[in-house]
Amino acid sequence: MVSYIAPPDWYNEAYFIFNYVICVLQFFGFGINLIHFSILTRPHMRSNSIYRLMIGICSCDLLTQVNTFLIFSPFWIRDSSIKEEQCYMTLTYFDAFLHLHGTTVLDITQRGASWMALFMALYRTLSVMFPLNPRIQKLSKPVFAVWTILGVLVFTSLTTWMVQARRIIKPYDWDYDCDKNEIHLNETRYGVLVPNEFSAIQSKLVSTYGFIKALPSLIDPILTFFLILELRRASKRRKNCGKCSEDRTDNTTKLVMFVTISFFLLEVPNGLSHVVNGFFYDNVPVRTISVMVPVFAEILPVVNSSSHFFICILMSTQYRETAKNLFRRAVGRHGKITFVEECNSTKTHNSVKKEPVFVKVT
């Protein structure tokens, strides 16, 4: 139970304000990602493997937004009227359930999006470096993107289960008040913890899991470097051929590069906190800091996922045209009235008389 020291006085107030900020941002982020998802799922967009992988990333981002909202919004979906409860280390069963299973799903979706972005950059780098290799070019097939998404979700689910499987929800009838005095609780509350018999193996697994979390962000700079080199080579080739216009494949490469950069700092704080938590398992102050850091780092996935829509708008002509057509269809659904002239012939003078007819076009 007492595996962490009490946080400093400023932490609770900062955490409370942070909850407000992140929940407001999630509303905007969720709406932006819904628009982003509706554009990516158009038939001609789904025929591109890059955009199929981005559909997988966007789906994970939407689930991340929902889970983050549920876990970090106690003032909307939880009873926080009792001030004393803010000092408790224990939780209600609903909060404990969300903390255990909600963070499990959150880890799967966050890691999944990072690994999908990594494979998207890897496939793009290989395809532009080896354009004549038939095996490499198979990676750009849309069906291969689907298998990549499924493989990533299986991998992230197994690695997350590796760490979360030993955590349990334990009931408590005591806690500490705001003066750090042990008190008896009138009703049973709960805590999420790892039993003592699994503490040694858990510390090693947490360290390994932290490295797996940080791995995509560590590989991203390498892939970004190769993508930048490939863009420069393509620019030189166009100059040698006397072409001034930019190739569309370069735009796609830039799109992948910017999406990869957006994931660069996403996993570093969370991953390193797990590594520190595992290596300094007996150092209570260090473990406390390692737990506090990723709490505030949860704002990074919200900002990162919301940026993908704007990156695609700026970098992809096909995405912009699809967005414009989707907007025009949404506006055109209201319908409009136009004038159509109908020609009728008369029997007396064999002349043609034009009469206006109102037609509603929907």
Score class of each variant (00 low, 15 high):
E85K: 11
W147D: 06
L272T: 13
I261C: 05
D250A: 08
T338N: 11
D175Q: 00
D173Q: 07
T338G: 08
L98N: 15
L25S: 09
V143H: 07
D247F: 01
T346W: 12
R333I: 14
K204L: 07
I299W: 02
H44G: 03
L132M: 10
P294K: 02
L132I: 06
N67R: 05
G242Y: 01
C58K: 05
F211D: 02
V143K: 11
L100C: 03
N186M: 10
T288Q: 13
H99L: 14
E341W: 09
R166N: 12
S3P: 00
T348I: 09
C23G: 08
A117T: 13
T288K: 07
P131Y: 00
G31R: 04
Q137A: 05
R166T: 12
V146N: 13
A330T: 11
C60E: 03
A96M: 06
G335K: 02
L62N: 01
V192E: 00
F258C: 03
S273Y: 02
F258D: 02
N344V: 13
S316C: 04
G112T: 06
R111K: 14
V128C: 07
I108G: 04
I183E: 05
I212Q: 10
G271A: 05
F144L: 10
A330L: 13
G112N: 03
K204Y: 08
T159F: 13
Y319W: 03
L314G: 01
D247M: 08
V359S: 09
G29V: 12
D177E: 01
I136R: 01
R333F: 13
Y209W: 12
R78S: 15
V152K: 07
S207N: 11
V105N: 10
V275N: 04
F130G: 01
H101W: 15
E13R: 14
G29W: 08
T338M: 11
V105F: 14
T362A: 08
F258L: 12
P142Y: 08
R78C: 10
K360T: 10
L106W: 09
G31S: 13
P142D: 10
I108S: 05
V66A: 06
V2M: 05
R329P: 00
K360S: 09
T109N: 04
N270H: 11
T249A: 02
N33P: 10
K243C: 04
